[in-house]
């Protein structure tokens, strides 16, 4: 809570805040970071394996191997989320599983599962991209901005 808000509290409330602060379980921040690093790194290694696999056996170059790799990773996560394994990994690793592209697959499917009881059209269809929609929106928007800047720099900046 910000300091500004604390000033408006009554003395009893302030006392309570101090007590709560003391009793609060400290988050193991460093441990969480290590876990996220290790699990996130493992996901990236799997991604690199898949990318190399596609390059070795199919006609993909380093330039365009990203597309099938991302699709495969998301597909694997979706299956893992559906059968309930990804939840356990995410519980353990936190941001390590949310930041890579696998977090996107998880966000889509978990929302679909959650709203399944509301019907297929309004429930699953309407809520599937509740969480992942922001990723798509801001992803497309930032890509547009970056492309715009690049175009301007190349056209008029002489890069």
């Amino acid at each position: 809570m910000s300091n500004n808000k604390k000033k408006n509290l009554t003395p009893t409330q302030q006392e309570y805040q101090a007590l709560a602060g003391k009793r609060e379980v400290k988050r193991p921040l460093f441990k969480n970071c290590i876990k996220a690093f290790l699990v996130g790194g493992t996901i990236c290694v799997i991604g690199q394996l898949i990318a190399t696999f596609y390059m070795y056996f199919f006609k993909f170059t380093e330039q365009n191997v990203g597309n099938p790799t991302v699709a495969t990773l998301i597909f694997i996560t979706m299956i893992l989320t559906g059968i309930g394994i990804y939840d356990h990994i995410a519980q353990f690793a936190g941001a390590g599983t949310a930041v890579p592209v696998t977090g996107f697959g998880n966000a889509v499917i978990s929302a679909a599962i959650e709203h399944r009881t509301e019907g297929f059209v309004l429930g699953v269809g309407g809520n599937m991209f509740k969480l992942a929609g922001t990723v798509i929106l801001f992803g497309v928007f930032s890509a547009f901005i970056v492309a715009l800047i690049k175009t301007i720099l190349i056209q008029w900046g002489g890069l």
Partner: peptide, 10 residues
């Protein structure tokens, strides 16, 4: 023709 792409190395 020169390429640094891993695909062409393979």
């Amino acid at each position: 023709i020169v390429s640094s792409d891993q695909k062409f190395f393979f």
